[in-house]
Every structure is written in structure tokens, then in C-alpha cells.
């Protein structure tokens, strides 16, 4: 295996692990909430047994809260399943806007932990490319991770897909002035190996304070 693909492989494992850890943390929180609500229902039953009446509305509200958490877990597990199946096809025609929206959702908790919001500004027409979806998600995550660390005072990183002659451009905006020591760290070996595997280009533009990914319309690996 050559060096570039070894890096791509290692980055992929790291990315998969990071997302899975975040998802499992969120699911564990949901289980903890359901555990507390069911515990409260048990407590209320003991209270009723001691002769203190409980309003049926109170019980209905608690049942509603459990259903709400089940819906939340269902959404998370659905995203986890979509993410797991990204590796099924090494080449696929994808809507870049949809992938960005998915990545914004998938990394929502990680962004929130850093006090950052991730927004996607969709273009009027879908921007499609034929590429390796997992590698694309990986490079989007690495770029987003770096961008979140440089988010300006608005604390909102915007992902903007644009059609470009012969492919697509993804812009990561909402960055503050980039300190020289940080600028020299991006793109690092991981980003370079991934963008090379995707046949694209990556740049950190310090003048306009953006990360820019250029991706070809079709890439033969």
C-alpha cells in the first residue's frame, strides 16, 4: 500500500470512530433521559399507592416525553445507518448540498460542544458530482473541524456548495483572521491525501478567510 492510501485509510478509521463515539454519546444521553422518566413514573406510582392522587395529564405528559426521546433516538440511529452505508459504494453521483446538510447534522453535537453552529447555504440548483462519498464526507469533516476551531465571533460556520466549470466548489465561511501557526497546519497530510484521492484541490484562503474545496465532476480513482 502506498503512503497516500495508508494515510487515507487511517483518516477514515479516525473519522468513523469520531462520529460513532459522538452518536453513541447522544444515544446514551437519550437512554439516561428515558431511564429517569421511567424512574419518575415508578416514583409517582409509589406516591399514588400512599393515597396521593396524580392527575392523568401528568402521566400523559411523561409518556409524551418518552415518545419525544424515542423519535430523537430514531433520527440519530437513522443518520448512523446512512453514515455506515456511505462506504458501500466507492463511486456514486451525489448532491453536494445534501452531503453537506448530512455532515452538518452528523457533526451537530460536536459543533455544539465547541459552541459553534454549522449552517448550509444551498444553491438554487443541485450541485452534483460523481465521487467517493465516504472520502468526500471525510474531507468535509476535517475541513469543518479545522473551521470550527477558527470560527469568528458569530460562531457560525457556513458551508456553501457551488457549481463550477467541471465540478463543484465547497466554501467554508465564518472564519476569523487565521494566525500564522494555524495556517501552516492546514491542509495537513490527512487533508492532502484525501483531496488527492478525490482528484481535487484544497486551499485555506487567508485573505477572504475561507477554506475552499474544489472537486471534479467525475473522478476516476
Amino acid at each position: 500500500m502506498n503512503k497516500q492510501w495508508e494515510i487515507v485509510g487511517n483518516e477514515g478509521f479516525r473519522f468513523f470512530g469520531k462520529m460513532n463515539a459522538s452518536i453513541s454519546h447522544e444515544v446514551k444521553n437519550i437512554l439516561a433521559i428515558i431511564n429517569e422518566i421511567s424512574g419518575l413514573l415508578e416514583d409517582l406510582t409509589s406516591v399514588v399507592e400512599k393515597g396521593v392522587p396524580i392527575e392523568p395529564e401528568r402521566l400523559k405528559a411523561l409518556a409524551g416525553k418518552i415518545q419525544q426521546q424515542v423519535r430523537r433516538a430514531d433520527g440519530i440511529v437513522r443518520n448512523m445507518n446512512t453514515f455506515a452505508h456511505t462506504v458501500d459504494e466507492a463511486k456514486k453521483t451525489v448532491d453536494v448540498g445534501e452531503i453537506l446538510a448530512f455532515m452538518a447534522t452528523l457533526s451537530g453535537r460536536l459543533a455544539s460542544m465547541r459552541g459553534v453552529e454549522v449552517q448550509v447555504t444551498l444553491s438554487e440548483h443541485p450541485v452534483t458530482i460523481t465521487t467517493n462519498p465516504f472520502l468526500l464526507e471525510n474531507i468535509i469533516w476535517l475541513s469543518l473541524d479545522f473551521a470550527m476551531g477558527l470560527a469568528n465571533e458569530e460562531k457560525t460556520v457556513r458551508l456553501i456548495p457551488e457549481a463550477d466549470e467541471g465540478g463543484a466548489i465547497i466554501r467554508f465561511t465564518g472564519l476569523k483572521a487565521i494566525p500564522a501557526d494555524q495556517a501552516s497546519r492546514f491542509p495537513a497530510d490527512g487533508e492532502n491525501a484525501l483531496i488527492q484521492a478525490l482528484g481535487g484541490k484544497i486551499a485555506l484562503d487567508q485573505d477572504i478567510r475561507e477554506i475552499i474545496l474544489c472537486l471534479p465532476e467525475t473522478h476516476e480513482q
Binding site: 439516561a32 433521559i33 429517569e36 422518566i37 419518575l40 416514583d43 406516591v47 416525553k65 426521546q69
Partner: peptide
């Protein structure tokens, strides 16, 4: 940061 968790736990403790 999970409001539902701490509010319910607080109610259970108050019981």
C-alpha cells in the same frame, strides 16, 4: 446540558 435529564432527576430527588 440535557434539560429533560436534570429536570426529571431533580423531581425524583425532591420526591
Amino acid at each position: 446540558d440535557e434539560a429533560e435529564l436534570v429536570s426529571t432527576l431533580a423531581e425524583r430527588l425532591s420526591i
